[in-house]
Structure formats: C-alpha cells, structure tokens
Design a protein around this nucleic acid. Structure first.
Length: 232
DNA sequence: GCGACAG
DNA sequence: ATCTTGTCGC
C-alpha cells in the first residue's frame, strides 16, 4: 500500500465526521469473520502512548509458540485527531500502519489494544485496520464501548458479549485480581478463534503478551522522546 | 432529550 | 490516554 492509499484510509485531516463514518462503512464492506489464516508462526501486538501532541506507536512481533520477542519497532508522529469515541481508528490508524510497514518480520495476525467488531458499526480499530490491510486482527480492550455481558468471576471463565442480538466478542477473566478483558474479532478471525488465540497468549497477567509488551515498549519509547526529556 | 462512550 | 505515592492484599 503506497502513501496516497495510506492517507486515503487513515488521514482524518480536512474531512468531516460524516465522511469518516462513510470510510468506516466502506472498509467494513470487506469484513470477514471466518478464519482467514493458516499456521500462525508470528503474532504482533500494538499500542500507543501520548505526550503533548505526539503519538508514540509500538509494535512488537513475537514467536507464536514461545511468545518470545522476535522484533520490535516504534514510531512517533503528530496526533491527527482528538479522541472521539467510535473514531479511534482515525486517531491511531496512520501511526500503526506506518510502523507495520517498517517491520521486517511480518506477523500472521495482530492483536490491538482496542475494539474489533464490538463497535456501533463494527468498525473498531482492529476491524478497520484489518479490513483495510486485509490481514487477520483481534481487538482486546479493558472497557466496553458497546454491548452487554454477564461478568465472568473465575479465572479462565468467559462470557459472551452481546450487541443488538448478536455475539460480538467475549469478556474473559484473565487474572485473579483484574477486571475482565474484552476480546473481539477484528478481521479474518472468527469469534471462537479470537478467544482461543488470546487465551494462548496469556502469561498470568491481565493482558495477553503481544499487547502487554506493546504497552511497555510504547511507555519506554515515550520517555525517550526529546519533548519528554526536556520537560521543566 | 439524557446518558454512555475503546484510547 | 495522561497527571502520580503509597498502600492494601495474596
């Protein structure tokens, strides 16, 4: 995907919210909830940190079987849009696409720190990115954007997340002392597989390794940017 | 109209 | 997300 195509899908500047909503609908036209992957060798996680008007996006790639780090990359850009619920894909999308492009070891699937199809029009960050790039993605968030669910209480227990009469994901009690995490398919991953893949990536922490490491690396990269070091 | 609302 | 130390509990 070249730069103009990248801007077409991810640049919110000089566009109205109505136009951005149309882009989300257009991207979702390509959505698939069937497992569209073969053997998973590598899995990546992605997360963003913020400082002033800068967005720091980190993307580690791990070996799926051992969950060991293979490669990590991060990028710093100017935040293109304030946080507007249901439009997160246009706030973080460009930065994420940029880091993804720079990876030498492309992952077979990516885990996002955001929503997937558990979004008002199924255009959560994970789904939008996956549909635009046509790669398998999963969304893992800490708070519910939309939908209802029972609360899982035992570690390892999961409950269906329902929205408008359909299952759009899960709530999973991943850790004894943490609130449940919300899991949902992004693109090319079924509802069932999204849960199994995330479970495979759990190492006793609240978040699955891909996302947990992405969060750590983004925080590390953040304190290294000049704006942060020159603070007075 | 009112309240909710990923990061 | 971000601003931030100590502190309760296993």
């Amino acid at each position: 995907m070249n730069n103009s195509e990248l801007d077409y899908w991810f640049d919110p500047s000089s566009r109205t919210l109505e136009e951005l909503r149309l882009l989300q609908n257009k991207a979702i036209g390509n959505l698939s909830l069937e497992d569209g992957f073969g053997k998973i060798d590598r899995i990546a996680g992605v997360d963003c940190a913020y400082y002033d008007d800068k967005i720091i996006c980190s993307m580690p790639v791990l070996d799926y079987k051992s969950l060991e780090l293979i490669e990590k990359k991060h990028i710093v850009q100017k935040v293109p849009l304030p946080y507007i619920p249901t439009y997160l894909n246009f706030r973080e999308g460009k930065a994420i696409a940029s880091v993804f492009t720079e990876l030498k070891n492309k992952p077979d699937i990516i885990v996002f720190d955001s929503c997937g199809i558990n979004h008002p029009i199924k255009a959560g960050m994970a789904t939008y990115f996956g549909a635009v790039m046509d790669i398998p993605t999963i969304g893992v968030s800490k708070k519910i954007l939309c939908g209802e669910s029972e609360t899982p209480n035992e570690v390892g227990e999961s409950q269906k997340l329902m929205f408008k009469g359909e299952q759009v994901g899960w709530l999973l009690k991943s850790n004894k002392r943490s609130n449940p995490i919300i899991i949902a398919p992004g693109h090319k991953v079924s509802v069932e597989s999204s849960l199994e893949i995330v479970k495979h990536c759990l190492k006793g922490y609240k978040l699955p390794e891909p996302t947990r490491l992405a969060h750590m690396y983004a925080a590390e990269a953040k304190i290294e940017i000049p704006e942060h070091k020159n603070r007075k």
